[in-house]
Design a binder for these strands. Sequence first.
DNA 1: CGTTGCGTTGATCTCTATCAAAAAAGGTGG
DNA 2: CCACCTTTTTTGATAGAGATCAACGCAACG
Lengths: 219, 219
Amino acid sequence: MFNTKSFLSHVFLFEALSEKELEELTFFCSPKKILKDELLFSKGQIVDSFYIVAYGKIKIFRLSPNGDENLIHIQREGDLIAEAAIFDDERYPANAQALEESLLVKISADHFKNILKTNPHLCFKIMSAYAKRLRLFAKKIQDLSLNDIKGRLANFLLTESEKNIVTLSMSKKDLASSLGTIPETLSRTLLFFKKNNLIEEVDGKIIIKKSQELKDFIN
Amino acid sequence: MFNTKSFLSHVFLFEALSEKELEELTFFCSPKKILKDELLFSKGQIVDSFYIVAYGKIKIFRLSPNGDENLIHIQREGDLIAEAAIFDDERYPANAQALEESLLVKISADHFKNILKTNPHLCFKIMSAYAKRLRLFAKKIQDLSLNDIKGRLANFLLTESEKNIVTLSMSKKDLASSLGTIPETLSRTLLFFKKNNLIEEVDGKIIIKKSQELKDFIN
DNA sequence: CGTTGCGTTGATCTCTATCAAAAAAGGTGG
DNA sequence: CCACCTTTTTTGATAGAGATCAACGCAACG
């Protein structure tokens, strides 16, 4: 069964919120299921809420005057939808449509802003969550533009490891994709590290044997 | 003569401030002129202020241990610099350097935070700015992990173009860096597009001749 | 059991970084 | 305005990294 509060506590924007703040927020949220191809909102509608994707895929797009679709992005699990709009615009700047059956958490814009208005402390937490995430993304961009796959994998292993052990939280297929490569290459790169005795793989966990040498692959 | 208060009143971030608040803010601001190639701050320095560009261009970039440059973005008139840093760590996450002579307004982080505490509307603007930048970063990450150089360049040209004309705001060297490649490859990819009659280059400006075909290179 | 999706391995080919060098563009000082 | 130097941009040749295509083992699952 889907638990809104528990879900929200894992959304990056709300990670720093206290139990009480979370409780208050949850009060103005509602889960919203949406079927494939259904429109969530369209461009020009008055903004009354923003959304967080619990699962599924939502396409954000605009239509050009001659009817061409201009895809802006696709939001998926954990991503926010239209949260920028609630702060400045009063109308949605684009259309949102489900690419597959999806579950969203809908947050009322007015209520959310009201909570924020009366609680500067909360504002700060949210802003610092944004700042943190921005920094994370900047790092990721640097990683992608400067490192090759060995470097990116080494980077991943070293940042994910706890006491030299990495427990993969996703499939290798997804890991490959998040490293900007394909499963075959990931498999080979892991093999390369294994052959050089830098890592070991034991029932799904990766053990880092020589972290310094891994570091040397990172730019 | 440059008037800080009058300038600030036109910055989107401060539109919601009252005359009195503006006065107060101005008190903690100072204009700062910076010459071409001068460093504004470097990665790791303690954050005590953030900046707004009054005119000029500031390059934000990181360096890898072996000296490779990763250009994160270029900020120009009206853009904020290091505003995320004031909520996060106490150290700048990147370097900032002037591409040309520029004028900045320097705002003390501590004082700004004080004003924020009593002004939720200002908080909202900040959040909106963060949300937009975050989206930009997310797009960049997607671009870097999914597209090859042709795709990334096509993407860049199409997003930067105004009525099919792209005016480069940076050197091709910097553009290469921001696309996650090197000048040689950028030069060749431009040549490839030219040879296929998709673009044309006339005194520093790039003219897009076939935008649909450029789009086909993007994943 | 057959089916389906994931992970690994192999062979091949393409793209892009690297190295080298020339051409073009930008400053600088006389 | 010119000669000179530096930096950027372009072009060429080459090597290496990684994608693609194909095939197979394996586990999960109906």
